[in-house]
Simulated scan of single mutants.
Amino acid sequence: MNQVREAIAALGTDLGPDVLVQCRALFDAEQSALMAQVPVSASDVAYGPHERHRIDLYQPQGNTPAPILVFVHGGGFLKGDKGGATDWPNANVGRMAAQAGFLGAVINYRLAPDNVWPAGSEDVASVVSWLKANATQHGGDPDRIVLMGTSAGAVHVAGYLKLAGDRDVRAAILLSGLYGYTPLDQRDTLYYGDPALYPDRMPMEAVAATHLPLFLACAEYDPPRFQAEFLGLMQDRLTRHGAMPRAFIHSGHNHYSMAMHLGTADRRLANEICAFVRETTT
């Protein structure tokens, strides 16, 4: 574990395909070994009409119906995939959920630039509706749904709160998201469109104001903008509610590795997430 931490520290706070590949290599052996232990129970199930409207389910052993943990992958609005039976990144979160006794649901959603705001958040809403109607047959409790997203996925979960409010889900977990506390990045316009509309389209008001239980996290080696967003939302929540939300700063990890390592022997964040899901779905 120390070697992994040292390797991640050496990568610094940069983002990009080369860093992503190096992060995946750090966990490839351990995550590949875990794939056979928790196979996908239903794959590429359609939750909507678009070709990207697909969901994989990881059913737990033991008592059902189980709480449902929905994971929304990152990818800067432009890329990303839920993984599956032969591709572990992002699928590892579904497997982690199943091992913890939850129904793990890992989704794909429509991507920019062909699909712009609020497509991603609308897709999260479609997933929630699909689970409400179909989760029981897969061992899940449709009344105990927790949403979780990383990076762009966290943005889409936050956007769901803006579109739908706090109905139909029990809680939300936001890993390294962008909520509107920092200036617009050029890449963001590919999803949000006209920069003049950007402030009204960001979900920070809804996320800061909601009474839905929240769990926020960022990584020690997250880029400064993501750390500033984390702190901005923490301060906003404190100002509005008189208390900070449940939160975690993950030492020894970066923007990519924070979700990528879930399910491995480094249980620090996984334990926090699973405890939060249990507490908010009892």
Rank of each mutant, 00 (worst) to 15 (best):
L131R: 10
F102N: 12
V124C: 07
A133H: 13
V116S: 15
G177M: 03
G149D: 11
K162Q: 15
G159K: 03
G149E: 06
G153F: 05
P118C: 00
Q137L: 14
L175D: 06
T150W: 00
L131P: 08
T182N: 12
W130T: 04
D185C: 01
N108W: 07
A135E: 06
V169G: 00
G165F: 09
L161A: 03
Y181W: 02
W130R: 06
A100V: 14
H156G: 09
V155L: 09
A164G: 11
Q137E: 15
L111F: 03
S121E: 05
L111C: 06
R110E: 08
Y109L: 02
Y109F: 02
A97S: 13
I145K: 08
A171I: 07
N115F: 04
R144K: 02
A100D: 14
S121Y: 14
V127K: 01
T182I: 10
I145Y: 10
A152S: 15
L131V: 08
K132A: 00
R110I: 13
K132M: 00
T150P: 06
G120H: 10
A98M: 03
A112M: 05
D114Q: 13
G104R: 10
T182L: 07
L163S: 09
D123W: 04
V157G: 01
D188S: 04
R170Q: 05
A125I: 01
S121M: 12
M148K: 10
Y160R: 07
G177A: 02
D114M: 04
S129W: 10
G140T: 03
L174A: 01
S151L: 09
D143V: 02
P183F: 13
H138Q: 07
V128R: 09
I107H: 00
V116A: 13
V128K: 11
T182M: 13
L103N: 11
G165W: 10
D143W: 00
L103E: 08
A164F: 05
A135T: 04
N108G: 01
I173S: 14
A152T: 15
S126K: 11
